[in-house]
Design a protein around this nucleic acid. Sequence first.
DNA 1: TTGTCGTCGACTGCCTACAGCATACATTCT
DNA 2: AGAATGTATGCTGTAGGCAGTCGACGACAA
Lengths: 242, 242
Amino acid sequence: MLANQGSTAKIVRPTTLRESVLERILELIIIGSLKPGQHLVENELADNLGVSRQPVREALQLLSGEGWVDLRPGHGAYVHSPTVEEADQLLAVRTLLEAESARLAARNPDKTDISDLRDICNRGLAACVADDVDAAVAANSELHTAVVNMSGNRVLADLTSQVARRVRWYHTPVARHRGRASWEEHAALIDAIEAGDEDVAADIMRRHTEHTRQSYLESRAQNPVEEPPAPIRRRRPRAVSG
Amino acid sequence: MLANQGSTAKIVRPTTLRESVLERILELIIIGSLKPGQHLVENELADNLGVSRQPVREALQLLSGEGWVDLRPGHGAYVHSPTVEEADQLLAVRTLLEAESARLAARNPDKTDISDLRDICNRGLAACVADDVDAAVAANSELHTAVVNMSGNRVLADLTSQVARRVRWYHTPVARHRGRASWEEHAALIDAIEAGDEDVAADIMRRHTEHTRQSYLESRAQNPVEEPPAPIRRRRPRAVSG
DNA sequence: TTGTCGTCGACTGCCTACAGCATACATTCT
DNA sequence: AGAATGTATGCTGTAGGCAGTCGACGACAA
């Protein structure tokens, strides 16, 4: 189901400089060392990372493809900073995608997958009781990932991940952890998947992610971030066919 | 995410070389001059386009972000060639996204938008009757684009476009035009949107795109493409949070 | 004070060149 | 003959450098 990481290990990764630069910049963005809206000067990054500008440039291009940074031709790269509106739309789409994942997962539930889910759920609940926020967040993330992978639709999984990334949860930590109620919803979800109740599973997931969305929006309303002037992105519209 | 093209027109486009190279390569891919699975040698492209390798490289990186080409570190870029499985999954996701678009469009229908839809629909039907396949395909594309835009969710529109692009319809032209029945479905869809029938609109769109999916798959089953060895994509799994 | 112009600094975009692999072929050994 | 190894070639990855361009700041005029 999930690309088996085991076999991938066999492949010799020609771990290019560009890739490692990409990872490091990404890390800096995630931990918040590079703030949303910040201008990423190629020379600075190159110097700090001890490489030339070229790998940095290419890493930035790749990051833009994943929605982490925005490219303004002639101006350089800026850390992507989703507006409230965009975050709202992203979360709406996420709800849609994850609900479908839950539906597909329930369509042909797998015994081992289910038991994995239960393990994760138990760990998450334990972490929640122990007030270990980090562990709870990790388990939560793990669980959602497991469900989308169970859908069997890799495209769906990819898009979900992409969409979730672009929300930038880390800037509103409050929303990442809604406590015990969240885990009860998870448990109910697993039950529905195990029972093969497509509609129920989808509905639970939908409401669950909708809760998260509300949490996020409220959290963001309380901690308003100054919205930097929207970078001029030059996207060309492509027709939809069919 | 999709910049409004109207205001963009005013902005002086610092049309970089990389961007024009990107457009030209994209065109070559679309018209089929560069075939799926083909190895894109940077030097060749650079020579043919009369530029250096650098802009070509960067254009390829950007194209990889949009799913047009696959990058194999140390090997270069290859025109993306979706497997039947991937195309199937893409179309499944497209169904999901477009059905939601139709739902949202029906949630707050706009008079002028509706009349635009009808115009497009009439043109499409006329083209269909006149056996003008190109015009019919264009109208079809236009209509779907209009509906996703009516959803008011830019992220949704963007993702839909992205997903649709990755299917590569042009390699199975048969599936792009299902004739008159398709336009009757469109007409019904517009009625539902105008009436504000969310569920009906979503359902019509779902079945409509599902038809297209079936068409595509059958068409591809009849014209099997030799599947090139899957390039080793190095996707790093990212956690989903929330 | 406000609007306009010109200069300056900084950064990006692009080019050329070199180094490092990967693949394919030729060669040698068993 | 078959397998393993050496070699050659083509391509990618990276470095460094130059020119063009954008934005900011300050000077000058209304």
